[in-house]
Design a protein around this nucleic acid. Structure first.
Lengths: 220, 220
DNA sequence: CGTTTGCATATTGTCGACGATTGATTTATC
DNA sequence: GATAAATCAATCGTCGACAATATGCAAACG
């Protein structure tokens, strides 16, 4: 009975559940950017009170998925080119630092798990499962962040990563050059597992930098 | 009638005002860590409704100044040694990146303003005005972040910096070796103003690293 | 015709009271 | 004395109402 107390505290808070529901709709693309969100309407649909909806919307605003115009409206956020630059540069910095600390502090188990994810990623690419590949890519980077055991870093990274996914949905994510992609990942994993902190940071940053180039080209 | 539209939208939202009031009490040390915060009591003191207090507390929880124990209580956050490590390492990373981008993108005016703050800082140190020196130090780093013109970076940095200040209040900030301090600042300013991006990042990071060493020693 | 003023309306902001839920404390029972 | 049940205080969530505000439209005015 060591590690099974987690789903209680969070699940019964209606505000969080409401936020999850709305977040899912936004991330799936069902609610497009600039879509207006009415408190009363959401309250009816979710069968909760307006106050609960407001707390949910406040959370989503903090996550950057929703924008509040005071006394006027709530709406789904859009992502401009400048936003994309912010997201990918900041992601690069955070993941670079995470890779450095992970290389320094990661446990043997965590390193093995990282390698396992890497192998699954390679298999997924070879099998041509693009959707699963994207998922494994995120999982890989999250594993590196988790290895750093840095709560605040993890929090900030989670928010940024969610916005990256949101942006991908909007922009219509295009799977691109997977060969270089996999090669970069493997080098990064090797550096983290091998405990080469500086190298790991450099690789993680440049890895993301190549992505930002691809995306800024795709958006101009 | 050009520039007088600013004080409207934010200031009159009671939730924000309430958050400001509570935040000020916490940052001043009037509300010490682990101090319990009762919704009804705060509502009476601030003369607002409980709902408004809750939105204020939720905001402060996002900022890390307050902890929510679901269905049980709100309390002022404490700062452990591990927290201090997180704060200072993350601050180093964010300000390092900010210094890099500031060196690349800062306008001439912004560079002059940065130098001006640097001069004021030196004067303040020489005059022995420790409190003012601390203030100018924060101002200097915020100017560098502002020069990066990176909204998300600025947001995250603001939160971290506030927690750093909070931690300083708790730990009883001790002004230490100011000579090396000033020398580091001057080198950093020079690098940013001179547009030496890589150097600026390195200096900003190592600058914070020396601080984390001092503080981790002071706390053990 | 263009501009300004005022009004109608929709939406968010705030309030206060109420019951439900939860965690901690105290009491009762064995 | 240990365990179970009752009690209590605080938060969580709901509801209904009203106030504050922004926006669009229409009337008044030049």
């Amino acid at each position: 009975m060591a590690s099974l107390t987690s789903l209680k505290v969070e699940k019964r808070l209606l505000g969080r559940q409401a936020a999850e529901a709305i977040r899912a709709s936004i991330m799936s693309g069902a609610l497009p950017p600039s879509e207006r969100l009415l408190e009363v309407q959401l309250a009816k649909q979710l069968e909760v009170s307006r106050g609960t909806v407001r707390s949910a919307l406040a959370q989503l605003a903090h996550e950057g998925l929703v924008r509040q115009v005071a006394f006027t409206k709530w709406e789904v956020s859009g992502t401009s080119v400048a936003d994309a630059w912010e997201l990918y540069t900041l992601r690069a910095v955070l993941e670079g630092f995470a890779a450095r600390v992970a290389a320094e502090r990661g446990t043997p188990e965590e390193r093995r798990e990282l390698e396992a994810i890497g192998r699954r990623l390679v298999q997924s690419v070879q099998a041509g499962h693009y959707e699963q590949t994207t998922e494994l890519d995120f999982q890989l980077h999250q594993q590196i962040v988790a290895m750093a055991r840095h709560g605040r870093l993890a929090d900030q990274h989670r928010v940024i990563l969610q916005q990256v996914r949101f942006h991908m949905v909007q922009a219509g994510f295009l799977p691109h050059d997977y060969e270089q992609y996999v090669a970069e990942h493997e080098a990064l994993i090797k550096a983290v597992v091998g405990g080469h902190a500086e190298l790991a940071e450099r690789l993680a940053r440049s890895h993301n930098d190549t992505e930002v180039e691809v995306l800024s080209k795709a958006l101009t």
